[in-house]
Design a protein around this nucleic acid. Structure first.
Length: 625
RNA sequence: GCACCCGUAGCUCAGUGGACAGAGCAGCCGCCUUCUAAGCGGUAGGUCCCAGGUUCGAAUCCUGGCGGGUGCGCCA
């Protein structure tokens, strides 16, 4: 069977059509095909499993009593597979599933959705290459990585890009600081941390020696623009990537700003823009000598509709570079060269743009996205809107939806804003270390004999961290607090991981008992022995495909995180369920043959769904903990 | 000043216009001779910021306030 909910929607729509075709009915020009049929789970204390308030909507249009309409629709309904009966409960249409058929249907659902044929280019991380990544970046990396996994599961081809701003002032300052302080890396701390300290020191030194430092940094910036310090920047990038890999994030391509400029994307982008009637070069007034773009047609109500693309001194603004880069992302410019950069922990190759690389790579096509999604903090909303507007204006209307900005709010530190310049930060590496340390202590306490204690501690510690960054909406400010971010109980990754491990434990015992699981076709299973408890659990499992699609559509990983909690809660509730006498009544192994096999298959379905949901969030699911 | 985001239990947050608004944490009371107690059950805790409006129906949509955050540079 396919997903039950769409099947129900179709069935209800069909019944409505029959109802309206009745000559006695006044259809009031109602077209059942365009009717939005809501189908949702029924509250626990109401009869049935799924329900629809469709009669309300019709009652208004047909000017008939909703309860009466619900009855009329119910009479004309042909129940889809897995449904025992559908009846009117007051004005609601309530669906009673057949437990056995429903559960088997759920067990046949597949996790991956049908291919969309679309390519999504996701940019995330993009940390300035001048210091170690901090917990603000953590949110970016984890959000972007989770979104990439979700989009893939939702059927899109995904390319993850990490933009390296190697011509910026921040990189220049850090690199200049090495020579300025005559510092020598001795390997006692991670390279990016060492450099970050020099960067902060340089900031302080400016108070006494501003002029010399300014001149020196300007010199380094020119070297960077000419690509002379590529190796030095690469060293920083590699150190930062270690942190990303430890979090479980991987990439397809590094895109270096110097390469974007060298490929002429800035110039060619400007040439495209100059064709627009909204782009001009005023000879008088406030913007004399500059190249400006009027965005008021796309962004009404702006106080200042002119955006400067090229300054009157001839230097391009950052947003102009960004527009060129994005024209390439969606396949409207070509010209980068590529080379392998590193083999990542999963074994997948990370590629990089580079001046002396190959113009094409066998078996892959970079960029050419049908859509670009940028994971960038919410303060960049204005420039992101300008880039999107530029794509729209130059795209002749066909790229309206080509750029999404996944805007996430800042992470504060115990209520305080972080500042890299002031050194007021908390490094991701530090947090990972602490998270794993705490997790290990708990693992050793709960499971002293666990052989995989180290691996579990990493999975749990890092999982907790990732989950803390993902469980709320991106537009909510996160105040980073240790107890909350590293919590191993309650609404957390370990809660879900534990539920998964618990299911695995049962399934190990099931295997030892000689029961071979084959999902809906499990031998010896008596599906008719299943009841409402299994239905409730399976209904939760059945939500996964819809949740995946919704999270992808809305660029909202938190939808998956919330679902993972719901599923784990449903499973824990089932596992601990007791009958009216207070005795456990959901045991798998102690159930009579037939029911035992059917329940085991359900548990396997739950285990798989939990693992998949965690996988969408980039969180590993240990089999024991 | 203008624009965007947020306002739901003591705290942190879920809640694609539908059935009495839900979790976690903190509090209180229980549950391991039961397949993993990192768990489960119970209890207590709400003017869903306020006021209007749309709707059969609003935490959800619209308007106007109030409170908080952010952004508005020929910076990146």
């Amino acid at each position: 069977m396919t997903d039950l909910v769409p099947a129900l929607q179709d069935a209800i729509r069909a019944a409505v059509r029959v109802l309206l075709d009745d000559p006695a009915a006044e259809s009031a020009g109602l077209d059942p095909d365009t009717l939005e049929v809501g189908v949702q789970r029924v509250p626990d204390d109401k009869p049935g499993d799924y329900g629809s308030p469709i009669a309300f909507a019709l009652a208004k249009r047909l000017r008939r009593n909703p309860a009466e309409l619900a009855r009329a629709i119910a009479e004309r309904l042909v129940a889809p597979a897995g449904v025992a009966r559908i009846e009117a409960v007051g004005p609601y249409l309530n669906v009673f599933v057949d437990p056995g058929a429903f559960v088997r249907g759920v067990l046949r659902l597949r996790g991956a959705l049908a291919a969309t044929g679309r390519k999504v280019v996701i940019e995330h991380t993009s940390v300035n290459p001048n210091k170690e990544a901090h917990v603000g970046h953590l949110r970016n990396i984890v959000l972007g990585d989770a979104l990439a996994r979700i989009e893939r599961a939702a059927g899109s081809e995904v390319e993850v890009q990490n933009y390296i701003d190697d011509t910026g002032r921040q990189a220049a300052e850090s690199l200049f600081a090495i020579g300025y302080f005559d510092a020598h890396y001795d390997g006692t701390s991670k390279y990016d941390h060492w450099l970050g300290e020099l960067y902060v020191r340089l900031g302080q030194a400016k108070e006494a020696d501003a002029e010399a430092i300014e001149a020196g940094v300007a010199h380094v910036m020119h070297q960077l623009e000419r690509g002379e310090l590529r190796a030095a920047v690469e060293r920083i990038v590699r150190a930062q990537l270690e942190t990303c890999f430890a979090l479980g994030a991987e990439y397809d391509l590094l895109v270096w700003e110097s390469d974007v400029v060298a490929a002429g994307f800035l110039q060619r982008g400007l040439e495209v823009l100059e064709q627009l009637p909204t782009v001009s070069r005023p000879t008088a007034g406030k913007y004399a000598g500059a190249l400006v773009m009027d965005v008021s047609a796309f962004l009404p109500g702006l106080e200042e509709p002119q955006v400067v693309l090229v300054r009157s001194d001839g230097n391009a603004m950052y947003v102009a570079k960004d527009i060129g880069y994005h024209l390439w992302k969606v396949g409207r410019l070509e010209g980068l060269r590529y080379a392998p950069f590193a083999e990542q922990p999963s074994g997948a190759m990370l590629w990089t743009s580079t001046p002396d690389g190959e113009p094409s790579v066998a078996g892959r096509t970079f960029a050419h996205g049908d859509q670009a999604v940028n994971v960038i903090d919410a303060r960049q909303a204005h420039p992101q809107t300008i880039v999107r507007t530029a794509l729209q204006m130059t795209g002749g209307g066909r790229d309206e939806d080509s750029l999404h900005h996944l805007a996430y709010e800042v992470v504060t530190l115990e209520g305080q804003a972080m500042s890299g310049r002031k050194g007021l930060t908390l490094a991701i590496d530090t947090v990972i270390e602490e998270a794993v340390r705490r997790a290990r202590a708990v693992v050793l306490e709960k499971q002293p004999n666990l052989a995989s204690a180290d691996a579990v501690a990493r999975a749990v510690g890092i999982g907790a961290l990732r989950f803390a960054m993902l469980k709320s909406e991106a537009r909510r400010v996160i105040d980073f607090r240790w107890e909350q971010a590293l919590s191993l109980a309650g609404d957390s990754a370990p809660y879900v991981q534990y539920a998964h491990a618990r299911a695995c434990s049962i399934l190990r015992a099931v295997a030892e008992a000689g029961i071979a699981l084959r999902g809906a076709d499990t031998e010896g299973a008596d599906w008719s022995a299943l009841g409402p408890l299994e239905v409730r659990l399976a209904a939760e499992v059945a939500r996964l495909p819809g949740v995946t699609a919704q999270a992808a559509e809305a660029d909202a990983p938190h939808v998956v995180a919330q679902y993972a909690l719901d599923l784990a809660t449903a499973w824990n509730g089932y596992y601990n369920h007791r009958d009216v006498h207070g005795r456990p009544d959901t045991s798998v192994l102690r159930a009579e043959p037939g029911l035992r096999e059917a329940r085991a298959a359900v548990v396997a379905g739950v285990r798989d769904a939990l693992a998949r949901a965690l996988g969408l969030l980039g969180i590993t699911a240990p089999e024991q903990m």
